[in-house]
Design a protein around this nucleic acid. Structure first.
Lengths: 132, 132
DNA sequence: ATAATTGTATTACTGTGTTGATACAGTTTT
DNA sequence: AAAACTGTATCAACACAGTAATACAATTAT
């Protein structure tokens, strides 16, 4: 499993794990029903404690990203978000406002931001051709 | 000064203050050279300790949003970000990836995300007409 | 059946983030 | 010049987030 931990970064390990797994799922590198590495296996690979991996998996399950079965393993879920449409809108609005604010802060106007986002969106799942 | 603190929320007070001030600046509700409320004044208004407001202002100064002059007050800065273009790109890419990831997670495809963002961008500074 | 693998629960330690009290240092106003 | 305002620095207290050690429970493989 392709995960890199950064000591510096500031964000705690368990969040780095959840973020990167969410990214792998969103970009199609991990597909529904696929099994993730075991808590202890991934822990050893990343040289962190199994507890931390377990916490990451727990959070992912709470968000509906994975389903974990005691004794069997944890698996990517069907990708249907358990949130109401209202909640989805609220969250997206929050994130978009933050992005717009930061963008302006950096002196980037809306037009170029949209352009950048379109580019980024294309590169997002370019692994279908570019994978080594 | 139009700031609302939420006890629940989870995010600490000093960050709620910085976030909301950044938003006010980015959306044009606060303009360069404008003076912010004093540390003690805003503290009293929000019923928090002056220290917390001071910390918020300190962070904002570190990010180049405001300039504070001991004895005089703190003022909105000229809006020129002190970061290199490389850093700007890095930050924006990070934020965009996070938004794209979350968007997919919620089952929103890129087209509608872009549409939503355009709408949001318009409402962003609609205070020029809509202000009471 | 039994052993080896999986995730889970409990508990505790430790660092550090957040807030608070108080005193200091510059400006501005009177 | 003095008083009343600004922001700043220092220190302490407290809570909580993050990680870790260890034992438990369910499934899978032998």
């Amino acid at each position: 499993m392709q995960i890199q931990l950064s000591e510096a970064d500031g964000t705690p390990y368990y969040q780095q794990v959840t973020n990167q797994i969410k990214f792998l799922v969103a970009s199609g590198r991990l597909e529904p029903h696929e099994q993730l590495p075991s808590v202890r296996g991934l822990a050893q690979q990343l040289t962190i404690t199994p507890n931390t991996v377990a916490r990451a998996y727990r959070e992912l399950e709470a968000e509906g990203v994975v389903i974990s079965k005691r004794g069997a393993g944890v698996f990517i879920s069907n990708g249907v978000s358990p949130l109401s449409n209202k909640e989805k809108r609220r969250i997206l609005n929050e994130r978009m406002d933050a992005l717009l604010t930061e963008s302006r802060q950096l002196g980037v106007d809306e037009a170029t931001l949209l352009k950048l986002l379109r580019q980024r969106s294309q590169k997002f799942d370019s692994h279908k051709e570019g994978e080594k």
